[in-house]
Simulated scan of single mutants.
Amino acid sequence: MRDKQDYEIYAATLKERNRIAREIHDNVGHLLSRAILITGAMKMTNQISSLRETFDSLDSSLGEAMDSIRKSVHDLHDDAVDLKKSLEELITDFTFCPVDFSYHMAKTLPREVKYNVIAIVKEALNNVIKHSNATLVRLTVSEFETLYQVIIEDNGKTPSPDIPTNPLNSNTQGIGLINMTERVKKLKGNITFYRQNAFKIYIKIPKH
């Protein structure tokens, strides 16, 4: 019961952050854009040389304010991404076979970890559809003291005599697996692909 209440509070907080980000973008951002346009027009029509430096300074300050607003909106939106909910939505859309989903992560995670894990899981599920006859996928996302761990495995039988088992090497990876590898490398993590009676992706991402 307590965990459910905590999650509801967390979800409400994320929703409010998204609302604030939209308000800043739609209202404050619009006003700043208008002020920048007006300042630009005044600079073009100004004939008084003594005011040129003032207009340049005003234009620069408004530009910095706009950049700051954009960064704040971007950060608010990124922080509002709920990894668990995003993965659950991917699983709901995945109708190829059932997914056994296990999630053990903190509520606050680095945005880079969230976005890349979402992209990797999406790629992995697409690969199941394209290359497997699986009847079950297991997705486990866990957090430990020094690292994050993602395990994606299916029970599909996909015999390929030209592909070795345990682990697959870089010469036998398709585009999807290469994309996953690049994403994990950006996070300074490790990813291993195994094929032995099924297919398994094992990912470790260090905490920084």
Results as ranks from 00 to 15, higher is better:
196 Q>C: 11
16 E>I: 09
30 H>R: 12
10 Y>K: 11
177 L>A: 05
109 L>R: 04
174 G>W: 07
161 P>A: 02
122 K>H: 12
146 T>E: 11
134 A>T: 05
28 V>S: 15
181 T>G: 11
22 R>P: 00
116 N>W: 00
2 R>Y: 15
18 N>I: 00
168 L>H: 01
70 R>L: 01
197 N>S: 07
197 N>A: 09
13 T>W: 15
190 N>V: 02
104 H>E: 15
162 D>P: 04
4 K>L: 08
10 Y>P: 06
25 H>F: 07
126 N>E: 10
177 L>I: 10
165 T>L: 11
47 Q>W: 02
161 P>L: 08
72 S>T: 09
166 N>L: 05
165 T>W: 00
184 V>L: 01
99 V>W: 00
26 D>K: 03
1 M>L: 05
170 S>P: 05
3 D>C: 08
192 T>C: 03
185 K>Q: 11
61 S>F: 05
64 E>K: 14
89 E>D: 08
53 E>A: 12
144 F>H: 06
21 A>N: 06
96 F>V: 08
181 T>R: 01
22 R>S: 01
138 R>I: 06
191 I>E: 01
3 D>E: 12
206 P>C: 10
54 T>Y: 07
6 D>E: 15
145 E>H: 11
81 V>D: 02
134 A>R: 00
19 R>P: 02
136 L>N: 10
69 I>C: 03
